[in-house]
C-alpha cells in the first residue's frame, strides 16, 4: 500500500495538522518509504497468534469509588486546571465560537 498526496492531505486533516501543498508533497515519499518498510511484517505467519494486550502479564486494578481520595487525581483544583490556559474566562476555558 502506498499513499498519494490526497491521502496525505486527508491524514493531515484527521490528525489536525495544517499542511500546505509543499508539505504534503514532501511527506508523500517519506511516508511511503516508512510504510514500505513496515510492510515486511506481512511476511510473518501470525496464524493463531493473539495480538499482545498486556506487555507484562498483569490485570487491571480497579479503584474504590471515593471522591478526591488522592488530591493529585481529585477535583476541586480549578486554579491548577486553568493555570496554563491560553484563554481562561470566568472559570471556563475559552475557545473560538463553535457552531454545532
Amino acid at each position: 500500500m502506498s499513499v498519494d498526496k490526497a491521502t496525505v492531505a486527508k491524514i493531515a486533516s484527521l490528525a489536525r495538522i495544517r499542511m500546505d501543498d509543499a508539505a504534503c508533497d514532501a511527506m508523500v515519499p517519506e511516508l511511503n518509504q516508512i510504510l514500505g518498510w513496515v510492510e515486511q511484517l506481512g511476511e510473518v505467519d501470525v496464524t493463531g497468534v493473539e495480538p499482545m494486550t498486556a506487555v507484562i502479564p498483569n490485570t487491571l486494578r480497579l479503584r474504590d469509588d471515593v471522591v478526591d481520595a488522592d488530591p493529585l487525581t481529585g477535583g476541586g483544583v480549578r486554579d491548577k486546571v486553568l493555570a496554563n490556559a491560553p484563554a481562561p474566562e470566568h472559570g471556563f476555558f475559552g475557545v473560538p465560537k463553535v457552531i454545532e
Partner: peptide, 18 residues
C-alpha cells in the same frame, strides 16, 4: 485509519506477541 487497522496495528501487535 479505517481499513488499515488490521493490516498494520493488529498485525504489529501479533508480531509483538511473537
Amino acid at each position: 485509519s479505517a481499513g488499515f487497522y488490521d493490516a498494520y496495528y493488529n498485525q504489529a501487535q501479533k508480531v509483538r506477541a511473537l
